[in-house]
Each structure stands twice: as structure tokens, then as C-alpha cells.
Design a protein around this nucleic acid. Structure first.
Lengths: 215, 215
DNA sequence: CACTATCTGTTGACTAAGCGACAAATGTCG
DNA sequence: CGACATTTGTCGCTTAGTCAACAGATAGTG
């Protein structure tokens, strides 16, 4: 086991997200989708009252009524589960708001930024009794997961419509995703901040040059 | 197939409830409990907007994300599923109210009567837009299921503490369960009726002589 | 009447989930 | 430090769930 290294290796670096086998290709088997849904739901419920760090795979699977071996058949570790859970809720949030990914990159970017802002506020509301929610709105692994999801979505978009610059898609996606999250986090911690709809364009204008270097 | 006959055969008659294989012995396998829970939950949700009669097994399993063949591995037909669902919710209601089955028959009877009254009002609240809820509070198969559950509980109690009379336990249980349901139904349809707590003792006093013929 | 369509139970082959046990890593406390 | 407990991945075997296909039943339609 190498807890922090697994993250620092796979995460901020340009390497692919560390979600080895699972969730690739939206499995058709109802048993698979059911198991993953149950695990993700259970983790979300547990996170209302517990720190992610203090949870063991044992506890998660016990609460879910799923065998521990089954867990490892779907996720390499609990961090991967967290990432997939965040991804699922993020996509659901976007879909609930009618954000569609047509050809327009700027619309997609705006949707993602808005999604991050709303996801943050929503996660903050239902978070556990944090002693200092202003200073650290979300636990670190949660933040990593959100950024990974945003990075993945940006990467997909970049590969469809490659920009002109010399930088690798991975570098662009990582830089932009961290920028978006950092901006949204700053916004969230600002007292009496604007609404997400009013604020999102600011981040969008800041980040757009990263993705469109020619501008 | 014999839709109505299967009911009229197995239900009001003293024969055992028609729940062939399933739910006998509270299966330990997590997969089994999960499947049954999902099917029962799904049926409850469907019943909020649909008539039980109009539902096919196909529809139920589709909505539940469970294979149709799996359904038949647990329940002989949709009526058995309904009965098991009602039984589960009824037991949950009793347990939620702290009704405990100690040695006292009168306490148990009171708990059951109260449970039926509350179950009826609760089922009525969440029922579909019935054109005439006063005349017919619940669809017929729902009524059958509730009575079957009550009958089963009474039968269990009677077998533990057999009364003195010459009647079979089945006859006593059937008569009493129908009496309880009929009384509760009448109470529910009475305008400005008493609370269930105030009313339950009345049924209890009417029914007790059936179960204790010596009194 | 035949034609079409849907629902009902049931079967057998295949696949995922459950279970117990294992070695190895990681804490934790005296 | 050593003894102990817990967690982590992993593996083979068993069991439950999925799937496609089947024949029979029921009902609606031209």
C-alpha cells in the first residue's frame, strides 16, 4: 500500500486518472450498475457523519451490504470510489441543470464552472459538523476527486477539438481544472459572495486563455 | 394461470397463505435480501401512481432493474410480492412504535389493532388520486394482503398459547383477522372519527372473545 | 377465423456476487 | 523493541442473478 504516493503519482501529474478497470464503458449488467450505485450511495451517506480518512473499505462494504471482495472487483481502493461518486453526482448535477455538451466549447466550459460552484455549495451544506468550514470547505480527498472529474471532462473536450498551442492536452486539462477549482473555492470562502451565475463568467474568462492559447 | 382462483382458494379459506417458497426463514444471503428489498420498494413506489391490477410482472421487474426470471425465483406471482411488501411495512410500523410481543396476548392484540388502523390511514394518505376514497379506501388486493398478514400473526400467537375452545387455530385466526380489518375499515370511513388510540380498544374488546372463547 | 401482440411461467448456460482464508502491510500499546 | 490487532489486496469455490428462448394463455383487430 502507498496511500499518498498513489495520489501524488496519479493525480496532479498529467498521468491518467487512477481508476484502473472500473466505470469504463458503463457496464450493461444490471448487477454491476446496482453494486456501484449502492457503494457510491453508501459512501455519500457515511460522509455526512464521518471523515473520509477514517473510513476503511471494510466499513463501507459492511454499511452497503456488499462483500469486500466485490468492492475490489470494481475499485482499486476507496479513493477511486470517492472519485467515481463525485463524478456521478457532478454529472447528475449538470444534467439536472440541462447543461448539454454540444459543439460549443465556451458553453461547455461555462457549464462546468457553474457546476463546480454549485457542487461546492451543495457539498458544503450537507457536510459534517466541520469545526472550521470557512477555512477548509471540503476534505482534501474530496477536492482531489472534484478536480480529477473536471480534468477528465476538459481532457475529453480538448481531444475532440485540439487547440493550436504546443502543450499536451494533459497539461492544459490539469492546469485549467486546478484553476477552476481554485477560483471556485476562493469564491465560496468570500463573505457575501455573488451568486454562482454572476460569478462563473469571471472564472470562465480567466481560464479560457489556458485552453485557447491563440486568443 | 388462475388469477382469481388462486386468491379465493388460498386466502379467505383456512388454508395456509400462498407464499410458496419465499420469505421463509429470512435468507442470510445479502443478494437475496437485496433483491427482495428492491422489488418490494419498487412495488410500493409504483402503487403511488398505478393500480395494482394494471401492473404486470414485466413492468415491476423493469422498474426495479431486476430480471423477470429472478422475480419468479422469489415470488410465485405479483400477489405474493404485494403480500410480502405489506407484511414488511406492517412489521416495520409495529417495530417503529415499539410494539413488542412478550407473553401478553392482550398487549399483542392491541398492538396489532393499532397497527392496522395506522397502516390504513398511512396507506390512504399516500394512495393515488382515488375518485372515491371514502367508499373504498384501499384496492381489494391490498386489503387481502393486510388481512393475510394479520391472520398470520394471530395464527402464530394462537399456536403458542392455544385457547380452550374446540375450534381450529386457522378458523380463529381468519375470523379475528377479518373482524379486525372490517372494524378498522369502518372506523376509517366514519367522518370525524376518533384517534386510533381511542378507537382501538373498542375493536379489541369485540375481537377478544373470538380468541378467548372461555371468557 | 387468422393475425398480432402481450403476458405468464419455466428452462439451461453464462456471469457477477458472496464467502472464507491467506500473506503482507500497517498501526498501536506496554 | 516485540506482541498484538486491524486493514489490505488477492484467490478458489459456491451461489444467486442475468439472459435468451421457449410454449401456453389471453385479448384485441381486421
Amino acid at each position: 500500500m502507498a496511500l499518498p504516493s498513489a495520489i501524488s503519482e496519479a493525480f496532479p501529474s498529467p498521468s491518467e486518472p487512477r481508476v484502473a478497470s472500473p466505470e469504463g464503458g458503463e457496464s450493461q449488467d444490471p448487477r454491476v450498475r446496482r453494486t456501484r450505485r449502492i457503494l457510491q450511495q453508501t459512501l455519500a451517506e457515511l460522509l455526512r457523519t464521518r471523515e473520509f480518512e477514517t473510513l476503511s473499505v471494510q466499513e463501507i462494504t459492511d454499511a452497503a451490504g456488499v462483500n469486500r471482495a466485490t468492492f475490489y472487483a470494481h475499485y482499486p481502493d476507496k479513493f477511486a470510489l470517492l472519485e467515481c461518486m463525485v463524478a456521478g453526482r457532478f454529472h447528475a448535477l449538470l444534467q439536472g441543470r440541462g447543461v448539454v455538451f454540444d459543439g460549443s466549447c465556451s458553453m461547455a466550459l461555462q457549464g462546468i464552472v457553474l457546476g463546480v460552484c454549485d457542487f461546492l455549495t451543495q457539498s458544503l451544506r450537507q457536510g459534517a459538523g466541520d469545526p472550521c468550514p470557512e477555512a477548509n470547505p471540503l476534505p482534501p480527498h474530496m477536492e482531489s476527486a472534484i478536480i480529477a472529474v473536471v480534468r477528465g471532462m476538459l481532457l475529453e473536450g480538448i481531444r475532440k477539438h485540439p487547440p493550436e498551442g504546443a502543450h499536451s492536452p494533459e497539461l492544459l486539462a490539469s492546469t485549467a481544472s486546478w484553476a477552476i477549482y481554485g477560483g471556485a473555492r476562493e469564491w465560496l470562502q468570500t463573505p457575501n459572495h455573488l451568486s454562482s451565475e454572476e460569478f462563473a463568467p469571471a472564472i470562465q474568462r480567466l481560464v479560457a486563455p489556458i485552453l485557447h492559447p491563440e486568443g
